[in-house]
Design a protein around this nucleic acid. Structure first.
Lengths: 106, 106
DNA sequence: AAGTTATGTGACCGTTTGGTCACCTGTCAA
DNA sequence: TTGACAGGTGACCAAACGGTCACATAACTT
């Protein structure tokens, strides 16, 4: 299993993406804290966090018996850079901004 | 199955990511042309392309009996924007550039 | 010390997924 | 019109994945 394989496999599950959303909104949460937000047993959440951690999408810091989880944006940016070059980036961001503007008007 | 679910599921397979790499290098290829680059039957490749197409990562244009495939960068950019805000983006790109520089020196 | 809180492990099971095959449709060229 | 070429469909099977459970370890509290 290669590094990037771990990253994409980790992102393939909606529960794990939701965990990233939670950490994007607020970093440094514990397993128990995150568990409350999902309709799933603690074991399930722990398993998902482990997958995210092994993919490098989440980094952890121990503090006593607690394990604090942080979002690591680097792998996400690398996905971006793999298929979007500097030149294309300008067009795409402009396109997305335009789309957003049009949707707000309607 | 939501839109973004389709995108992430599509990206979860290494063969499909390789197809995106091929189209990133050169757009507008046919199934037969792409098939030559993979060690897989035509049916397998067709199935993967279909998944990429349904996810909106690849768009197609018919030309007679040929089907030309193009890479669509928009969903990739949206993944980026989901977990990297404007502020963080600067730090992350700087970090990745630095990492690349250090690796080139060694 | 004893109870509570936070997290970790390995097994288990139903579902999904990757890849192949036999067979079929549509298009171009001689 | 006959054959070659480009692509599509539905069924099938082995392997991987999501989620749960019983059980276990470690740290804080009183």
């Amino acid at each position: 299993m290669t590094d990037d394989d771990r990253v994409f496999k980790a992102l393939a599950d909606p529960s794990r993406r939701f965990l990233l959303d939670l950490l994007f909104a607020r970093d440094g949460r514990t397993l128990t804290e995150l568990e409350r937000e999902l309709e799933m047993t603690r074991f399930g959440v722990a398993k998902h966090l482990r997958v995210l951690e092994e993919a490098g999408l989440v980094v952890v810091r121990r503090s006593g018996r607690e394990k604090l989880h942080y979002l690591n944006p680097v792998p996400i940016r690398q996905i971006h850079d793999r298929w979007i070059d500097k030149f294309t980036e300008q067009h795409v961001t402009a396109l997305i901004d335009l789309k957003r503007t049009l949707e707000e008007e309607s």
